[in-house]
Simulated scan of single mutants.
Amino acid sequence: MDKIILVIHVLTALAIIGLILLQQGKGAEAGASFGAGASQTVFGSQGSGNFFTRATAILAAIFFVTSFGLAVLAKQQAAVSATAGMPIVDESIPAVVEDSDIPVVDQAPADAAGELPEAPEAEDLPK
């Protein structure tokens, strides 16, 4: 099913690209005054504007629907693959750590002030 939607999606994208490239820009009407308007008689007296506009709108709607369908399918496949590799939680293991589980240190920390070397005097520093 996802392969069919993907093929329709790609073909629709290519068709939209083709239709957009076939459309004339807004500056194309200036050429009609010099005799270039005869090329639009295939699509009728109003030109190809309405045909290409409607076809692009229909293909854009199909592209949106296939994009949404592919996103839903990808989410379903991700949910299935994510739960397949998850470890099972063992309920027999206690979630609370008891005081007896924490090790006790017998010695107090050493005094760190006596172990550090003294800082040199300002007079002894190189200039």
Results as ranks from 00 to 15, higher is better:
residue 70 L to D: 02
residue 76 Q to K: 12
residue 98 E to S: 14
residue 45 S to M: 04
residue 25 G to L: 01
residue 20 I to L: 09
residue 35 G to A: 03
residue 23 Q to T: 12
residue 113 A to C: 01
residue 25 G to W: 04
residue 56 T to E: 05
residue 10 V to Y: 07
residue 29 E to N: 06
residue 46 Q to D: 13
residue 102 I to L: 14
residue 2 D to V: 08
residue 81 S to G: 03
residue 116 L to N: 05
residue 116 L to R: 12
residue 41 T to S: 13
residue 34 F to I: 15
residue 44 G to F: 01
residue 43 F to Q: 11
residue 13 A to T: 06
residue 126 P to W: 05
residue 126 P to A: 03
residue 68 F to K: 08
residue 91 E to P: 04
residue 5 I to Y: 02
residue 2 D to C: 03
residue 7 V to M: 10
residue 90 D to T: 03
residue 122 A to E: 15
residue 55 A to M: 11
residue 85 G to W: 00
residue 72 V to N: 06
residue 68 F to V: 15
residue 107 Q to I: 05
residue 127 K to V: 14
residue 103 P to C: 04
residue 122 A to H: 04
residue 83 T to G: 10
residue 68 F to G: 06
residue 103 P to Y: 04
residue 22 L to C: 11
residue 84 A to S: 13
residue 54 R to S: 08
residue 49 G to M: 02
residue 31 G to P: 00
residue 113 A to L: 09
residue 125 L to T: 07
residue 73 L to S: 13
residue 52 F to T: 09
residue 94 P to H: 03
residue 37 G to L: 01
residue 82 A to P: 00
residue 29 E to H: 08
residue 33 S to K: 14
residue 39 S to A: 14
residue 91 E to K: 10
residue 27 G to S: 05
residue 104 V to W: 00
residue 3 K to D: 14
residue 113 A to I: 08
residue 11 L to R: 08
residue 50 N to S: 12
residue 63 F to M: 12
residue 87 P to V: 09
residue 32 A to K: 11
residue 49 G to H: 04
residue 66 T to F: 01
residue 118 E to W: 00
residue 62 I to L: 14
residue 36 A to I: 04
residue 80 V to S: 09
residue 1 M to N: 06
residue 37 G to K: 08
residue 69 G to H: 01
residue 15 A to Q: 05
residue 45 S to Q: 12
residue 11 L to N: 10
residue 103 P to L: 04
residue 122 A to L: 13
residue 125 L to G: 05
residue 96 V to K: 14
residue 52 F to H: 09
residue 105 V to E: 06
residue 47 G to V: 07
residue 108 A to Y: 01
